[in-house]
């Protein structure tokens, strides 16, 4: 524990290494286990997984219905699930409704579909403001201008349910394959701070 702050990066690094070393020496953890488990979030688990889920929902009405009814079960069909996504709920954007997800108390985020959250999602500015002035945050901080006729629904992930935004399928994507559609789905569009890409880019 630090007696003075802000702590330097050198100090944090030393403390992290000290902690890991002591646990290794006591035989309580394995460095291979840590590297492998943490490494999964650098390789296999990230927004590309959620993008596949969204692309399937855009392509398959039956899947979309199940996703909105029970997102965990729908994701399990695609072999998607796991830690911090044991109970997932998908909320659908439409012409009338825009959903956006936040965690005001910490940084809860649906890891199995989006991976680990970006810093801005975890830091105080987004967490404090999104519940109070979502329209302003979306416009000023993310360049997303939500029309004043559109309802904004903010989901504060205060319990163990994790929310995924199902963005609207962009126009001009008729006939695209799931793979092509997935390439349009951005992380931000699944948090609700952005829109999917369009075929024109």
């Amino acid at each position: 524990m630090s007696d003075s702050y802000p702590a330097s990066e050198a100090e944090i690094s030393a403390r992290a290494k000290a902690l890991e070393s002591l646990l290794v020496e006591k035989g309580l953890i394995g460095t291979d286990a840590i590297d492998k488990a943490a490494g999964a979030y650098e390789s296999d688990i990230g927004p590309m997984v959620g993008a596949k889920v969204v692309a399937r929902a855009w392509s398959d009405p039956g899947f979309k219905e199940q996703l909105l009814e029970d997102a965990s079960a729908a994701c399990a069909r695609l072999d998607v699930g796991g830690m911090q996504g044991e109970h997932m709920v998908a909320v659908e954007n439409s012409e009338q409704v825009h959903n956006v997800v936040v965690c005001t108390l910490c940084s809860c985020y649906p890891w199995p579909v989006l991976g680990l959250p970006p810093n801005w999602y975890k830091y105080p500015q987004y967490r404090s403001r999104t519940v109070m002035e979502p329209r302003k945050v979306l416009k000023e901080e993310f360049g997303l201008d939500v029309d004043e006729s559109v309802d904004i629904r903010v989901w504060d992930s205060s319990a163990e349910i994790r929310y995924l935004v199902l963005p609207e399928r962009p126009e001009g994507t008729e006939g695209m394959s799931e793979e092509e559609l997935a390439s349009l789905v951005t992380r931000d569009s699944m948090i609700g701070v952005g829109k999917p890409r369009t075929p024109e880019g």
Binding site: E9, I12, S13, A16, K17, L19, E20, L23, I29, A33, I34, D35, A37, A38, G39, Y41, E42, G46, T104, L105, G115, L116, P118, N119, W120, Y123, P124, Q125, Y126, R127, S128, R129, V131, M132, V137, E140, E141, F142, D156
Partner: peptide, 29 residues
């Protein structure tokens, strides 16, 4: 929730999952 005066949202482009080895070590620990 609702606290004011904290400033703007700092969005980092092309942000890595872990910014340095200790972030990954702490996450894994």
């Amino acid at each position: 929730g609702g606290m004011q005066g904290l400033g703007g949202v700092d969005v980092e482009g092309n942000e890595p999952v872990f910014h340095n080895p200790w972030e990954k070590a702490i996450f894994g620990t």
